[in-house]
Amino acid sequence: MADNKVWKPKILGMVCNWCSYAGADLAGGGRIQYPPDVRIIRVMCTGRFDSLFVLKAFADGADGVLISGCHFGDCHYLEGNFKAAKRMFMVKRLMKSIGLDDRRFRMTFVSASEGAKWAAVITDVVRTINELGPSPITEFRK
């Protein structure tokens, strides 16, 4: 692991149990292939995501962060994803103000029946982060 010289993006995904996590499982059931660069942390609802989690991840050296939950109106807890989306905009503004490209942080909506969409989302997230390259924070810490 240590002598792995090629840069591989480090991407954190925080997904809700009811929609996106289920959608990701469905992609598995359908054997829909996508790149393996995202690590998933499961929470009950995207409403659980604290802006600080995202900032902490970037501070720890994440190259990208993805929050994914239910479509608006489908949240298992009514409106957690609305609250999450609000926080997402705030975090994005903060990122811009410190010179961090806000394309590194994304919120998506993938339902329990959208396995193919999940695979497409991950593929696109990985492509974007690959294009953006290593996070400037990691570079700075070096």
Binding site: I41, V43, M44, G47, R48, D50, K56, Y77, A84
Partner: peptide, 29 residues
């Protein structure tokens, strides 16, 4: 148990059982 309150509290005063902030931060770290 959605955690919406826990995701917001500015003082970190809400402990979400089984999805507590220290537990999630430990996962990220």
């Amino acid at each position: 148990g959605c955690g919406t309150c826990g995701g917001f509290c500015p003082g970190g005063a809400i402990w979400m059982q089984h999805f507590a902030t220290p537990q999630i931060v430990a996962q990220i770290d």
